[in-house]
Computed example of a mutant assay.
Amino acid sequence: MVQVADVSAILLAAGTSNRFGAEDKLLAPLAGEPLALHAARRIVELLPKRRIAVCKDTDGALAQLLASNGFKIIVNPHPEHGLSQSLSCGIAEAALGREAAALICLADMPFVSTRHLRELLTRFDPRTAPAVASSNGNAAMPPALFSRALFDKLRNGEGDRGGKALLADAALVHADPDELLDIDRPDDLPAR
């Protein structure tokens, strides 16, 4: 187990959202609020030592929204290079701190509960479970928690796979598949 005060939480929010269309997916309304704000609020409720958001810029609406919720904004200058580029940017910032682990969350996963994030922290052990991932019963996926000892490997991933290789051996924390849904297309959003 790792204490929440010894965790950096990283919200990946710099994707290109190609499948969503022209609208900025992370600002699309869900239950009256921007989509990304749902995931951000679960992190805020968790109370980690540091909150980091990886965005496309520092002055756009999304970056300003996340900054106003206490996130340090880190810019991914090349979001077109995939999720691993955002992960690398976030982990580089987390590595500047002293926290024992980094919790990786995706801004397009609005239904993940704070309870589930706490379960990831509870399952973590730096020796026996240095990587802990969520599972919908079929696959290991984010949100995921990684020991500081894995930061260098996370920084060197490529494409949209990011930390996927490290998830292959991760300890798993199961959640209802609906909780782990991500929003890729406008049709994925519940009725507005």
Rank of each mutant, 00 (worst) to 15 (best):
V2I: 14
A168Q: 15
A39L: 08
A28D: 10
I74A: 07
C105P: 11
A92R: 13
L117D: 05
D6A: 08
L12S: 02
D59T: 08
A61E: 14
E93W: 07
L154A: 02
R123T: 12
N138H: 15
R51K: 12
V112H: 05
D178Q: 15
I52L: 06
L62V: 05
T16S: 13
K153S: 07
I183F: 04
P142I: 05
P77M: 01
A9S: 13
R127F: 10
L37T: 08
R185M: 14
D6Q: 09
A40D: 12
V44T: 09
A92T: 07
A39F: 10
P110H: 12
V112P: 07
I91S: 02
A61K: 12
A61H: 04
L180N: 11
S84E: 03
A101R: 08
G60R: 00
V54K: 03
P34E: 02
R192C: 10
Q64N: 14
A67E: 13
K153E: 09
T122F: 09
A39E: 06
R19Y: 02
G157M: 00
H174G: 15
H116K: 05
E179L: 15
M109Y: 06
R19H: 06
G70L: 04
T122L: 12
G60H: 00
L120Y: 04
C55I: 01
A191R: 15
P29F: 12
D6L: 03
F146I: 05
E158K: 13
V54G: 01
K153G: 01
D6F: 04
P190D: 12
A13T: 04
